[in-house]
Design a binder for these strands. Structure first.
Length: 410
RNA sequence: GGAGGGGUCGCUUAGUGGCCUAGAGCGGUGGUCUUGAAAACCACUGUGGCAGCAAUGUCACCGUGAGUUCGAAUCUCACCCCCUCCGCCA
């Protein structure tokens, strides 16, 4: 959420962001509602002042008259404020200067690490490898869980936990506080984190006001809701391991086979809260980016870093880099990581603040990035490290977590 | 799940319809005094909205939301959370 005063003073900038993202928000309506809101607040406050005087003097007649007037106006104000709030939640974040404007074709590959894996035999995809090695069971997964269901088995399970543990340990070692967050969250957390109103249909609802989160970013951001830090408590750096749930209602027919797009998976996620300074935010953005790339480097996976275009990035992001990892079976790069600067967009909704050196209270800046997500990353591991005989070599850094160095055919 | 008790300013607490513009103590900040410190004394000490260049004014906030009333921290209803006991349970 943006500051209404910022919107009023920088209407062009906000409008530009809305248009560049092809977001559906009536900004003129919002500004009109805000005028109404302000004028109603003045009127209501004036009447309340009158009421307070009358109550103090026990002037019941005046009080009754004021009450009548006030009742109508307060109702009107409530109506305007509700509409206003709804629109405020729909306004996307501003865009940072380097964001390319346009659709997916404007995504910009800014760096490649490693080369797409070459084979001197016909490589298999992870579906076939998973079946042959008896580590993934899609058929029974679908039988039990439905569409996009899967069972991980045997070495598949160990590899799954190994890669998650590896990423978690790697970040913990860098001083990130490790967390296992709740994944059933209240509505405010999803709204505050910027998942709602845009991603509502992608979210499982499990109670009147309870939802299964699609990322640990949601509980991690909500963790400090309504708190005010002292400046020396910042930055807050977290790394969380959690299950993630996504309905994928918006992606019917996309990636319907395999582990690429599933309803439930696990993810190690990094979150940083820092001072409200764009340069500081950018510094942490680079740090989070390095962390993720280091993990992929250590795993020996080829990848490319993509600067996301205005239409492809999320509504809450001011700047977003994705990492796409080479998946030999698809013969393409597939998204495995997403790094975001959100500025104070989420912290304003969640009221996460800090007291600056000069004593003023400001909203923190927030960033988040994937460290690793599994089983999606298993696609890259299995497909890139497969051998001609169908066995798969495990990257050395994972050996101490898996307890084996390759997965052999039974 | 059942039965009770409770949520007030950073902390402890007073407050059961108008004297609450929420009082007190503690803590914090500044000052007086002092060679310095402590003590004592004095002052200040929440967040947000709106108007204003500002000083300032005004409104809202006593867990949250609705309601009753001329007037609500106080009464009513719903919800959330915490504590105690009982039951169930990994």
């Amino acid at each position: 959420m943006l500051d209404i005063n910022f919107i009023r003073e920088n209407t062009d900038k906000v409008k530009k962001s809305i248009e560049a993202r092809k977001a559906d928000v009536d900004l003129n309506m919002l500004l009109k509602l805000d005028d109404e809101r302000r004028s109603l607040i003045s009127k209501v406050d004036e009447l309340r002042a009158k009421r307070n005087v009358a109550a103090k003097g026990k002037d019941i007649d005046t009080g009754k008259k004021v009450k009548e007037e006030l009742d109508g106006l307060e109702k009107e104000l409530k109506g305007v404020e509700d509409e206003w709030q709804k629109l405020m939640y729909q306004v996307p974040n501003i865009l940072m200067d380097e964001v390319p404007i346009g659709d997916a074709s404007k995504n910009k590959v800014i760096r490649k690490e490693g080369e797409p894996t070459k084979f001197n035999f016909q490589p298999k995809d992870h579906i076939e490898l998973g079946k042959k090695l008896d580590i993934i069971d899609f058929d029974r997964g679908v039988k039990v869980a439905g569409f996009r269901g899967y069972f991980l088995k045997n070495e598949g399970v160990k590899l799954h936990w190994a890669v998650l543990n590896f990423a978690l340990g790697n970040l913990a070692q860098k001083g990130y506080q490790v967390v296992v967050p709740p994944v059933i969250n209240k509505g405010f957390a999803l709204l505050g984190g910027g998942q709602f109103p845009w991603g509502e249909e992608d979210t499982y609802k499990v109670g009147d006001d309870e939802y299964l989160v699609g990322t640990a970013e949601i509980p991690l951001m909500a963790l400090h809701a309504d708190e005010t830090f002292n400046i020396d408590e910042l930055p807050k750096k977290y790394v969380a391991l959690s299950p993630c749930f996504r309905t994928e209602i918006g992606s019917y027919g996309k990636d319907t086979k395999g582990l690429y797009r599933v309803h439930e998976f696990y993810k190690v996620e990094q979150v940083v809260l820092c001072e409200a300074d764009e340069q500081e935010s950018i510094g942490f953005f680079e740090e989070l980016q390095e962390n993720s790339e280091e993990i992929l480097d250590m795993l020996g996976l080829p990848y490319q870093v993509v600067l996301m275009s205005s239409q492809e990035m999320g509504k809450k992001q001011a700047l977003q880099y994705d990492i796409e990892t080479w998946m030999a079976g698809r013969e393409s790069y597939g998204e495995t990581h997403s790094n975001s600067i959100c500025l104070d967009f989420q912290t304003r909704r969640l009221k996460i603040k800090y007291r600056d050196k000069d004593g003023t209270v400001k909203f923190c800046h927030a960033l988040n990035n994937t460290a690793i997500a599994s089983p999606r990353i298993l696609i890259a591991l299995l497909e890139n490290f497969q051998q001609e005989d169908g066995s798969v070599k495990i990257p050395e850094v994972l050996h101490k977590y898996t307890g084996f160095s390759e997965i052999r055919l039974k």
